[in-house]
């Protein structure tokens, strides 16, 4: 019971987008898919949902190929930045169509959500602002009978109140009917405690893949005087550094050396997800630039 992405590679015009990406998406979990712009997040989601074909590799759902397969495609929904709904169609009609094609749809819930978000279902899709297009697509995502729901930039164009409402509704619907959500977003802080498991896509590869507590357990800030910090972190996996006055902070991802004495002047704390992400995806870029 899972979606398995195996050794997926993709290139556009000889430029690598995904390089041998493998991951497993399990049922009834909330995932975060993090990556900087152009890291390949949308491409990966497009491949999983069969919107495009991978150059190499396979995607399966419960061991069944997801390539051109009604059975598997009907069990997933990808809400993406790209608008695939016809502009001139009214939202009510789009909900009818979705009901016909997915076979089942929680219409009362959709109508309640529309009211909560202040979305007029008599409007035409093309007339909506970016924020309300996002809202409409989110509403569909919450109401389709899919087991795996992919939300690519789910808060694009949403104001603070609507974002709050979105997170609340996400938890509400997840609690009532547990199913998998994979959230790809740049607003890491907002989902840091919401996601159970995180994938970080960096430079076309999955660089982090694990449960959030496990990953944060391995992420440290070592701060203190420059000399002491540098001595302590020697040989450790330092992913970034900050300097403020005489204070130096090194960010370490991976095990510390237990036998190494910790000087009194050095403070060790855990990193949060956002800071970890920034440092993990920064270092390589610097290396890239140099």
């Amino acid at each position: 019971m899972s979606i398995q992405v195996k050794a997926v590679s993709q290139a556009f015009h000889h430029q690598t987008i995904l390089d041998n990406v493998s991951l497993t998406i399990e049922p009834e979990k909330i995932y975060g898919l993090l990556g900087r712009n152009g890291a390949g997040k949308s491409t990966l989601l497009n491949i999983i949902s069969n919107r495009i074909f991978a150059d190499h590799g396979t995607v399966t759902l419960d061991e069944q190929s997801m390539r051109d397969n009604d059975q598997t495609l009907g069990r997933i929904y990808l809400m993406s930045e790209v608008n695939l709904y016809p502009d001139r169609t009214k939202l009510n009609k789009l909900l009818d169509t979705t009901t016909q094609l997915y076979g089942d749809f929680d219409r009362p819930y959709a109508e309640r959500l529309a009211k909560e978000f202040g979305l007029d279902l008599n409007a035409r899709f093309g007339k909506l602002s970016t924020g309300y297009r996002t809202i409409f697509k989110l509403i569909v995502a919450f109401c389709v009978p899919a087991d795996y729901i992919f939300l690519d930039e789910p808060v694009l164009g949403l104001d603070a109140n609507h974002r709050e409402l979105f997170y609340n509704e996400l938890i509400e619907t997840y609690s009532e009917k547990p199913r998998t959500f994979v959230i790809s977003t740049h607003l890491i802080e907002e989902i840091a405690n919401l996601i159970e498991h995180v994938f970080v896509l960096d430079h076309h590869q999955i660089t982090v893949n694990g449960s959030v507590p496990d990953i944060l357990e391995r992420a440290y800030t070592i701060s203190g005087s420059d000399h002491d910090v540098t001595t302590y972190t020697q040989g450790l996996n330092v992913i970034g550094a900050d300097h403020l006055g005489g204070i130096t902070a090194h960010y370490v991802y991976g095990p510390l050396q237990d036998d190494r004495p910790i000087p009194d002047t050095v403070k060790i704390e855990h990193l949060d997800l956002q800071k970890l992400f920034i440092n993990l995806t920064n270092t390589k870029e610097e290396a890239h630039v140099n």
Binding site: N69, L84, T97
Partner: peptide, 16 residues
């Protein structure tokens, strides 16, 4: 293509 977009968004395979 216009019709394909709506189909793939609604979990319909190309063959169907």
């Amino acid at each position: 293509y216009e019709n394909f977009k709506l189909c793939i968004q609604n979990g319909i395979s190309r063959r169907t």
